[in-house]
Simulated assay, not measured.
Amino acid sequence: MEFLDFTNAEAVAEYEAFVEEMGGSFMQSVRWCGVKQDWLHEAVIVRDGGGRICGSMLVLVKKFPLPLKAFLYSPRGPVWDYEDAAVLQELLLGVWQLSRKYHAYSFKLDPLIEETDSKKIFALRAAGFSFQPWQPDEKTIQSRNNYILELQNRSEEELLRSFKGKCRYNIGLAKRKGVTCTVCGRERLGDFQRLMEETGKRDGFRVRSQAYFEGMMDALGEKCRLYLCEYEGQPLSGAICVQYGGRTCYVYGASTAAHREVMPNYLMQWEMIRWAVEAGCAVYDFQGVPCWYDPQHPNYGVYRFKTGFNGRLAIYAGEFRMVFAKHYKSAFDRAMKLVGYQKLA
């Protein structure tokens, strides 16, 4: 077991190549550290007998001034072959060392494993993690309920034919009405921010700052794209999309209430799916579908919209926790509520 030297370009490149080859999340990329600049960061590496990386885990460190404790978090980690328990134990040896270094209260991870994957869940529980099955009202750092579209060995034409009829019609309608969808640079983030603020006010959620989105585009580089849909010179919808490890993710999206009749959101999703297909990705991830189980909920429309693309619901197992200092649990949980999950994500 070793820790990544972030100042060594060759070591970082080797780490990135492993995470991407294994289909790891962009949140396990070293690039993600540039987005989470208010966190400290470490990366644990395990090698096989031939010196090749066989396991890795990016760990973010959130330090609290009182009581001089820290929280360790591996977003969508670790990256390793779940069949190899010895590698996981080596990775956790590194986490234990980090817990002592930073006086950590606890460690949390939320890997991209679905709740039906009992074998992988067992591997993490056997390693000492506590785990609670999904509950409808549970708040987690990352979304547990995503909508995904499988892309492997499917052409654009096959995918388009597979969409529900109304979805195909709306994509065509947007084109016929003259809606354009363009990949833009960070100079258009002001337009996106205005759309985000309108969306947040309308749907009742807190909005990231423009500086955050600028940092995201800078840190992720060519892996991150800003899409804007416009009609008669007016931005109608926008999205920040990230492509990494064979998966293209619709991370942030926003829209105005104006001119909904020209269906810009359908065209925008289609253009991002086309980017995923061009890159040979296996999955297009629409990300969260809050309250998919409750047709009466105000946010149910998010789920209804995404089902038009005829993908599938993916419910992830959720968060696994390891506690190092139980007597700090109640104080830490109160701090988490004060900080808010959005700031941790």
Rank of each mutant, 00 (worst) to 15 (best):
Y231K: 01
S162R: 14
Y252N: 13
R194S: 13
V242Q: 02
Y82K: 00
L40T: 00
L124N: 03
Y316R: 12
C241P: 00
E115N: 09
G301D: 10
L151A: 11
L4S: 07
L124Q: 02
W275N: 07
K326P: 15
R76V: 03
K326E: 15
N146T: 13
T140D: 06
G253E: 05
N153M: 05
P65M: 07
E232Q: 15
S29T: 11
Y252I: 05
C241R: 00
P78D: 04
K101T: 11
V207Q: 08
Y303E: 08
Q37V: 08
P264K: 09
L338D: 03
E114F: 07
Y250D: 08
S255R: 09
R144W: 02
A276L: 09
V339M: 11
W275H: 08
F107V: 04
Y212T: 13
I273S: 11
Q89I: 00
A127V: 02
I315P: 00
H41E: 01
E278Y: 03
T307F: 05
V283M: 09
Q287I: 04
I141H: 03
R176E: 10
M57W: 02
K62V: 04
G190V: 10
E90F: 00
S74Q: 04
S255I: 09
Y147H: 11
H259N: 15
A279M: 03
Y250W: 10
L236P: 09
Y266F: 15
D38W: 08
S255D: 07
P78G: 07
A9P: 04
T307M: 11
P67T: 02
N145Q: 10
T256I: 11
L88N: 03
Q296W: 03
A254N: 05
I121H: 01
L112T: 03
K63L: 09
T248E: 01
M217V: 01
G165S: 15
Q135K: 14
L72G: 02
Q152A: 15
K164Q: 14
D333G: 01
R304T: 13
L72Y: 09
L91P: 06
F122R: 13
G49N: 14
W80H: 12
A17C: 11
A258I: 11
G77L: 04
S162C: 08
Q234I: 14
K306T: 13
R176I: 00
G215Y: 06
F131L: 00
M268P: 01
G221D: 06
K343C: 01
W39R: 08
V44D: 05
Y293K: 11
S74A: 15
K337A: 14
V79F: 05
E319F: 04
E138D: 06
K175L: 08
T180D: 11
E271Q: 15
Y102T: 06
P264L: 07
Y341N: 12
N299P: 00
V251R: 01
Y15F: 13
C181Q: 01
Q210I: 12
K329G: 05
R154W: 06
R321C: 08
Y73P: 06
I240T: 01
V339P: 02
R334G: 04
S162I: 08
F122H: 10
D5V: 05
V44K: 04
D5P: 09
S130A: 10
P298D: 07
D333S: 03
V19K: 04
A314D: 11
E214P: 00
S209Q: 01
E150L: 13
V79H: 02
M1Q: 06
G51F: 07
D285R: 09
A211W: 07
E222D: 14
P235C: 08
V79Y: 01
